Simulated scan of single mutants.
Amino acid sequence: MITQPQQVTPLPDPDEERRRIQTERLLAYRDDGPLVAVLKGRLGRGLPPVPATLAAALAVIALAVTGVLTDGVILLVPSLVLVALVVPTAARDHLGRFDWVTPPLLRGAEFLTIILLGLAEGTPKWLLFVLIYIVGYHTYDTVYRTRQSIWPPAWIFKAGLGWEVRLLVIGAGAAAGQLTWVAAILTGYLVVLFSVESVTSWVRLDKASALTQAAAEQDLEASPEEVMEAATGDAEQG
Rank of each mutant, 00 (worst) to 15 (best):
A235T: 04
T180E: 15
P10T: 03
E217G: 01
W100P: 02
P49Q: 12
P104Q: 04
L82F: 14
S201Q: 10
R147Y: 14
V191L: 13
Q148M: 07
G173V: 02
S79T: 09
V77G: 10
Q6R: 13
L186Y: 14
L117G: 12
L58I: 13
L27C: 05
A222W: 07
A222G: 03
L167K: 06
R107Y: 08
G118L: 00
I132W: 02
P12E: 08
L131Y: 07
L179T: 05
I150V: 09
W100H: 02
Y29A: 13
D71V: 01
I170R: 15
A208R: 14
V81C: 09
T123D: 00
A109S: 09
L119K: 07
Y133K: 03
I134A: 06
A222M: 07
R204S: 08
K40R: 15
P51D: 07
Q218H: 11
K40H: 14
A172N: 03
S198F: 15
P34S: 13
V203Y: 10
A174N: 03
T139P: 00
T180I: 03
G136K: 07
T23S: 08
T212V: 08
A64M: 09
E226C: 03
V38K: 15
T70N: 05
A172P: 01
I170Q: 06
F111I: 13
T53C: 02
L63S: 04
V135F: 10
V83A: 14
V87G: 15
R147V: 00
D15E: 15
L167R: 09
R30P: 02
V60H: 09
V227T: 11
L43N: 09
Q148K: 11
I21D: 15
S223W: 07
L112G: 11
G67W: 12
R92E: 06
I170F: 14
I115T: 12
L128H: 08
I170K: 14
L39R: 13
F98T: 01
A184N: 12
L39Q: 11
Y140S: 11
L58A: 15
P152A: 05
K158F: 05
P124I: 01
D15R: 14
D206C: 02
L39M: 13
T102E: 00
D71E: 07
P48V: 00
A216V: 06
P48E: 13
Y144V: 04
V86C: 09
I21R: 15
A120F: 07
L190F: 12
P124C: 03
T123M: 10
G118N: 06
L54R: 09
V73K: 04
V83S: 15
R19E: 13
A222R: 12
G238H: 07
M1D: 06
L127V: 00
K158P: 00
R18Q: 06
F111H: 06
T123C: 04
M1Y: 09
P152D: 12
A175T: 04
A56W: 11
P34M: 05
R18L: 12
R97S: 03
W155S: 08
A55E: 01
L119T: 05
Q22R: 14
P51Y: 07
Q237I: 14
I61A: 15
G177N: 06
T102V: 01
G160V: 06
T146W: 02
P104N: 04
L80F: 06
A57N: 02
M1E: 11
A176C: 11
V203R: 14
M228D: 13
T139R: 03
E121I: 00
Q22C: 01
G33E: 08
L190M: 15
G177K: 11
P14T: 13
A56V: 08
L211A: 03
Q178F: 09
L119C: 00
